[in-house]
Nucleic acid binder design. Structure first.
Lengths: 205, 205
DNA sequence: GCAAATACAGTACCGTCGGTACAGTTTAAT
DNA sequence: ATTAAACTGTACCGACGGTACTGTATTTGC
């Protein structure tokens, strides 16, 4: 039914924000139902336990993330036919998107889960690992296309460079939070852009 | 007294490992005292509450971290007089150190705390922010020295490049955990090394 | 060698939370 | 009107964080 899915989504959004701000273990079901204005029974109607909430949360997060990245790099490609320039535009669009978040990036669910490994079962860890591997595949494909036209100026494994992008996003989020500089993530993405430029620029070498 | 400090250190080590694996909120005092083989009274003798435990943990962590980085980059400098090569050697030493951890990096306390902000007071956030700023200062000094000899091949703010190093470490830890590849952090540090090489290499330009 | 601080142990208690169980009720689709 | 969906209400358990306070063995300074 429609209304059920709506409540479920509201619960997921509230839970995601709470978990990113306090951690999974410190997030009580009671505070979630208080904010969602439903009863405990209502919560357990949608999720049989806290673990299932986590599973649903990760599933939704990775799905939304994929859609966002799809759109972003598709737009970047439409603006520019050259794969290198398209990628550089994509990184800039991503940085701008991050810079536009007034409170900074709320945090990555994958990172939260990694830093609370013992609270989650194999299923969830498989999901987060799969998410990161999907990022890798996406970026490897883009980088491969670039390196066929622009031979890289350093002997690096393209899979590592692909993971480097995720590394900067994850690290940049932490730096933003730790330094309380919401724009730090965007600035760090621009340094990544600098690396990609130097790595593939034909003017050098 | 000697014995008290010893118990305190043991408690801190146990707590650090537990918090990095389960998060602060999900780490119970009871499990800590069970592993340390003391009573609840013993715990509250050393720390008046959980918050003071966190404070002590961060303090110790940042202190140990500073000593480690001091030694590492001092050694790198002794091996090489040129600031750029010394820095590249330092990054390699760091990568090797990370690669030598059989279970991978246990995690960074600063990152854990960032992803559980609402559980900690301003004091602790000031401490973690101070820690990250100390990293920035350290790396800015090293990079400044390099850039005076080797003009950078791209127009980037050295403060951002300094933060980039911390970003890679924080992000690399998460990638290692998420992918369950203990050596991922080391590999990502080598990509950072590739960037530093390209940024300052005089053969390019 | 003695007082005093240190470093705990023991016990008891409170409120909160995750989770279970199950019966009852409203809402919406067909 | 029927039926499934989407809840509410109530009651209860065990574990845990935290408080409080008393007692005691062990050092250490003097």
């Amino acid at each position: 039914m429609r209304k059920g899915a709506e409540t479920r989504e509201r619960l997921l959004s509230i839970a995601e924000a709470a978990i990113l701000a306090k951690g999974f273990g410190a997030t009580s079901i009671e505070e979630l139902i208080a904010e969602a204005d439903i009863t405990k029974s209502g919560f357990f109607y949608h999720f049989k336990d806290k673990t299932e909430l986590a599973r649903a949360l990760v599933h939704r997060y990775l799905e939304q993330d994929e859609i966002l990245l799809d759109n972003l790099f598709k737009r970047a490609r439409e603006l520019n036919d050259d794969p290198l320039h398209a990628f550089l535009v994509g990184l800039k669009l991503l940085a701008e998107m991050m810079a536009d978040l007034p409170e900074g990036h709320p945090g990555c669910l994958v990172a939260t889960i990694c830093y609370q490994e013992r609270l989650f079962d194999k299923d969830i860890h498989d999901m987060t690992q799969g998410g990161v591997l999907a990022w890798r595949e996406r970026f490897v494909a883009l980088l491969q296309e670039i390196s066929e036209i622009y031979p890289p100026n350093d002997d690096v494994d393209m899979e590592e460079v692909a993971d480097f992008i995720s590394t900067i996003v994850e690290g940049g989020i932490i730096m933003s939070k730790a330094l309380r500089e919401p724009k730090k993530l965007a600035a760090q993405l621009m340094i990544l852009r600098s690396y990609i430029k130097l790595l593939f620029s034909p003017r050098l070498a």
